[in-house]
Computed example of a mutant assay.
Amino acid sequence: MTPPAPTARLIPSSSRHFWANEWLTSRQSFPGTGNFDLFGNAHGVLAMHNDDVVAPGEGLDAHRHRNMEIVTWVVDGAVAHRDSHGTAETLAAGTVGAMTAGRGVTHSERNANTTHRGASVRVVQMWVPPHTDDLEPAHRSADLTDALATGDPVVAVSGRSDAPETALPIRNRYAALHIARPHPGRPVELPGAPFGHLYVVRGAVTVEVAGTDAASFDTSAPGGALSQGDALRLTDAGPVTVTAEGIDAAEILYWEMHASFDVPRSV
């Protein structure tokens, strides 16, 4: 049987879904605001991937979730998290939070800077479903600042059996989130997978995907260059090599996924 051909689809920053109100600016890899079919628009098991900027003194008041794994990466500023199961903490920049909503949890997420003359907060929030419904709700967090300083990728959260002990657990056995701040000119490698989602949080990077032609997804520069806000959706691709370009700091998020909502591909 012939294996499926790898694909790589570029979603430029300018093509991301956009939503805003008086205090929130949201740029979304998938339409996540309003009456959308989250699972129908998903890639792999990634159902939401919002890059949000929240004004000082603002945020989401108490609201309820159920049966979803919610991962929050704090890019700038700090987020105040509080939930109905007793967690109350502030997540600073460089911190990842992972919440199992399970059978139901009410929580709030606000800019920890409560003065309207303070700084905005920028977060990337990502949702994947659990592999089992109605689990015990939980919230975990980890400051990755020191680990990321090496330039090497860090497995930030994972539900896979091969996850390192340092990764925060999520209840989806098919998914893992890798984060990296690659040093300029020094390539880093991310694992191939049936489904992958690479997002450039900041800076500019060159991307090479084993088994694909860079020209098939690059629309901006030779060699597969991506810049802040660009996303790359991969299917059945080999290892992904990422190299930071220029002197500005680069930061990337990469979801390695071994299932989609219709058919699990491997464990």
Rank of each mutant, 00 (worst) to 15 (best):
D152Y: 09
G224T: 11
H139G: 03
A193D: 01
H131L: 01
P164H: 05
V201T: 06
P187F: 08
A221E: 08
L177T: 06
V207H: 05
L190G: 04
P153Q: 11
G229L: 13
V201H: 06
L234N: 00
P191Y: 02
T241W: 09
D134M: 02
A167G: 04
E208H: 12
R160D: 11
I170P: 09
A210Y: 04
G192C: 01
T241R: 15
A163N: 07
T219V: 14
G211P: 13
P130G: 04
P191F: 06
D133T: 14
A225I: 14
G192W: 07
P129K: 03
S220E: 12
E208M: 06
L226P: 04
H178Q: 09
P222E: 15
A193P: 07
V200R: 03
T145H: 11
A231H: 05
S141T: 11
T241H: 13
T243I: 06
L190C: 04
Q228T: 11
T206Q: 13
G211K: 08
T219P: 04
V128P: 01
L168E: 05
A231L: 08
S227Q: 15
P169Y: 10
R233H: 14
H183L: 14
H178L: 15
T235G: 11
L177N: 01
P169A: 08
L177D: 09
D143F: 14
A214N: 11
T219S: 13
S158Y: 00
D134P: 03
P182A: 06
G229C: 14
A167Q: 00
T166P: 07
T243D: 05
G238Q: 03
A210E: 14
A193W: 05
V205T: 03
E245I: 14
D146P: 10
V154Q: 03
L234T: 01
N172W: 00
A215I: 11
H178A: 06
H197K: 10
V128S: 03
I170W: 02
Y199R: 02
A167S: 08
S216W: 04
G224K: 03
V209A: 07
F195K: 05
E136N: 10
L190N: 07
N172Y: 01
V157L: 05
S227D: 15
V205F: 02
P191M: 02
S216C: 12
A221T: 09
G151R: 00
R186H: 15
H131W: 05
L148P: 02
L148G: 09
G211A: 13
S216V: 00
T150A: 15
P129R: 01
R160P: 11
R186K: 13
N172T: 00
D230P: 14
A156F: 02
P194S: 03
V209S: 00
D230N: 09
P222N: 12
R181G: 11
